[in-house]
Amino acid sequence: MRFGIPLEERIEPGNLGCQGCGGALSMRMVLKGLSDDTVAVIPACCWSIIDGPWPVHALQVPVFHTAFETAAIMATGIKAAKLQQGKDTTVMAWAGDGGTFDIGLQALSGAAERNEDIIYVCYDNEAYMNTGIQRSSSTPIGTWTTTTPDERPETRPKKNIMEIMAAHRIPYAATATPAYPDDLLAKVEIARDLRGTRFLHILSACPPGWKMGSGDAIAAMRAAVDSRVFPLYEVRDGLDVTITRWPEHEVDPEAYFAMQGRFRPLLDDPEELARVRRLIDRQWETLVARHREHHPEPAAG
């Protein structure tokens, strides 16, 4: 199989990412798909650290660091200035799940509703990792974090940010993961060539936060997709759903959970696990139904 991944790098080899950091890999992949005429906006998150301390930094595009809840609006302001100056620079907001699902949701919703001409990427490691693994509204049911300890693990399902973003009827929203880089790059290129608010939701493993070995990051991200815990799909104009990867060899969700120490409370609770399985199935069925609605021919796979 030949991957269509550009050879160009827009990130220097050295950065402060942990070993196996899915977020660092996501950034590397996304920048490959964008042009040199790009500015990145980074709110508080692991990436405020990963890019490096002054006076060095890893990205080969300008980076404007901003406050935790302002990624979308800071990108909007920069883009407005670029347009006022007659430039068509791509402005990419790059935020974690906390900065997207939680504290940054208001500004993101505002930008999306106005269809600001920005690319917003959420690299989702399913918790506040920068501050040491606290739950976010992206943390899945049954997860251990430092604020959802074993005795009282996460009880609510992961917030469905894609549905929220689709509800804004933005031109493009897609899920991806760097473990399937061809799929990711194809989506980055689609997003790059569209106008308006484009949203990429990238599952990005965090070995220390997910309590697994750094060598397991890619396998875990793949298992998330193949177990249908994190399906790969895109939504155009908020309504037209296309599943972009149909799991070839299905993985049992339990196998995905078992790879990671953070799911121990879930694995210890058969009832909760059964509930989670039903939820995964129902979400997948809903997604497939929406896919079929948009693609009346039965899709392959």
Binding site: V41, F64, E69, M74, G77, I78, A81, Q85
Partner: peptide
């Protein structure tokens, strides 16, 4: 924008880009 917090962020961004 949808808030003053965002209004201030937007003008900072635009100023940083030279306007």
């Amino acid at each position: 924008v949808e808030s003053e917090h965002s209004a201030m962020a937007a003008v900072i961004g635009a100023s940083a880009a030279g306007c």
